[in-house]
Design a protein around this nucleic acid. Structure first.
Lengths: 357, 357
DNA sequence: ATCGGGCGCTAACACGATTTAGCAACGGAG
DNA sequence: CTCCGTTGCTAAATCGTGTTAGCGCCCGAT
């Protein structure tokens, strides 16, 4: 049925040279090893005519490199995060002629072991260990077999692995600054965590870092958080109940919601109380989930740079592949990717005192 | 640094047999080829002790099979669809010891060519060509090199490729039946397409099939669609404007929205007009997008079975890999995956006449 | 005439598995 | 004693590429 693949031997034969010569020419080492212009041209032309493509499997056997990297995540299905992150990784890899083998562990250590084994069996040139929400993970022993980076995660025990993470602290500062720039100084409440640094979900790095950034930026402006409501889980229903709870006692001027799903619940609660966004209450949030631009008014939010995270992971991984890892310098480096603000419609200038200083 | 991989030769040497014998035993052909119990046990035990794992790259060179399948989609980032589809494919593949190499074309034919080439270079055992929204696609010539299936797509020109699609016609029937079962017979409007069969977006298979199903089920119950509003794109903003437009002239009792994003817009429009879901207007929709369960009231919708689609694609692909493709029987078969109804809160019994027959 | 050396290319091995062909030993039949 | 068939294993080829070592030729120098 399908015609047999054309191989290096075919090209060599057709060009009237040895396999060695053909190989040298096609790997670009012809000049270096004194192959004549004449022969070089003939081989190149023949390869072109026959549409020769080197067999990567064979090359992999010989050289040990398969031009393939493994992307292992806890789950690829939850949230849209995975998609953009994979897309970024995919494109960065493609730029270098690499492909991605993907797998998901669902948080199961045994599954993870099998998966890493399967990737090792296929001789991947590097590994990306990704988490779908920012957190610390236990690095499996098996990853020492190939260069590896952590994506959206930090190692639980200190490990010589680079990590790529969104810059959540700066994101917190930016969210706060959006409100400050609009003149808000009073009645700023948090929905999701806080107000104290210990009032955050245990596993979530993002929560504590965002909070740190928010408090820093507000503090520098001499502004204090008026109050906060925590959410057991960052889902719309809890954003709704937390905001309702808040509205029973106070009238906030601005809310910083710790993610967009919470903000969605907050919108519903405000609507219940007859309050308008942003006229009565300004809202700024985090993540830039797709719903953020579907909500009315459209939500101003600090975006998780999923695509850039994926790209960066691949870039760092290639640095790692090239590096002599026994040297160990700069091994556990943490790379922070900036989170951009998406200015939309949910923030209005403070109607109160424009009292600047 | 990392200790060299243990190879078949190592096992053979340690067990005091030839590589051939070790290979035969480990591939389970020992009995068949008269290897003694004694030797067989020794080899198995040695392999176990040394933690031998066959190198798939090497095996791939010899046998031509890499236990890897290629998943090519137009895009993996848009919508959550990709995630669950890939997840389903991933798990079905893993059940058979296969891994997925993924790539995306972004609708670019040249990119697609390069991608298929790259997968061919890596000797994938099969290909899944996936589309992120149901449509007809031009099947690239290159796919004839390996067994392939279409996922969420039909071939534009007749091609001997199996296709896996959601059962949209039946989904349309189910959506209609949800309303009929609740007693609705009058004031049923469509948002997104229709009312005529030609009032649908050109590229979208789902639109026309859903409409066919809706009309069939309603027709069988002797019910007619009261009216419809089309949307240029199935996004919340168009759902909003279409529904507003509708509400300016009539008071519907029920809406069938052609997807959840449109339904989100419809919710907003109904809210603007002071109408309550489901007390005043029942709504049923399609897709089961994550937002469907975040909306208030939660949206009743007919779900796209992404996970099952992914699984099914892999199952069919393995059938294809096993089959003698030169036979050509059952080549272009179309597999339909049922779309389940997610009963939630947006449909209420018709407050009008309970007049059944 | 002989030797050394640069030039241009190739023979041969290696990678790690699978698979074909066949070898050595043994026992029984003639 | 010879021949043949069976048993139990192994040598060697193979897949397609990369890489090392080296071969033959020609030219110039001695």
């Amino acid at each position: 049925m399908s015609p047999r693949r054309v191989t290096l031997a075919d090209v060599a034969k057709a060009a009237g040279v040895s396999r060695t010569t053909a190989s040298l020419v096609l790997s670009g080492r012809g000049r270096e090893l004194r192959i004549s212009q004449d022969v070089e041209q003939r081989v190149l032309r023949t390869a072109e005519e026959l549409q020769y493509r080197p067999n990567i499997v064979s090359r992999g056997l010989r050289t040990g490199t398969t031009r393939t990297i493994g992307f292992v995540s806890d789950t690829v299905a939850t949230s849209r995060l995975a998609g953009d992150m994979i897309k970024g990784a995919l494109e960065a890899a493609r730029d270098r002629g690499f492909m991605l083998i993907i797998g998901e562990t669902e948080g199961d250590a045994e599954l993870e072991r099998l998966l890493l084994q399967a990737m090792h069996d296929r001789q991947v040139d590097g590994l990306i260990l990704a988490s779908m929400f920012t957190r610390t993970i236990k690095v499996p022993k098996a990853v020492t077999t190939a260069p590896a980076v952590l994506l959206n995660a930090l190692p639980k025990q200190p490990a010589p692995l680079p990590a790529i993470l969104p810059d959540e602290v700066e994101a917190g500062r930016r969210a706060a600054r959006v409100l400050l720039d609009a003149g808000h100084r009073d009645g700023i409440y948090l929905i999701g965590v806080g107000p104290r640094l210990r009032d955050v979900p245990a596993e979530s790095l993002a929560a504590v870092e965002r909070l740190v950034g928010i408090r820093a930026a507000l503090g520098e402006a001499g502004v204090k958080v008026a109050g906060a409501r925590t959410c057991p889980d960052w889902q719309p229903e809890y954003g709704l109940s937390a905001t309702r709870d808040l509205l029973r006692t106070v009238r906030p001027r601005a809310l910083i919601c710790f993610n967009d799903r919470i903000a969605m619940g907050a919108y519903q609660a405000l609507d219940d109380f007859g309050l308008k966004v942003p006229a009565d209450v300004s809202i700024v949030s985090f993540d830039d989930h797709p719903i953020a631009s579907w909500m009315r008014p459209q939500l101003t939010t600090v975006a998780l740079p999923h695509y850039e995270l994926g790209r960066k992971a691949v870039d760092v991984l290639f640095g790692e592949i090239g590096r002599d890892r026994s040297a160990g310098d700069g091994a556990g480096e943490v790379h922070r990717v900036p989170m951009p603000v998406r200015h939309r419609e949910s923030v209005a200038p403070s109607s109160g005192a424009d009292a600047g200083g």
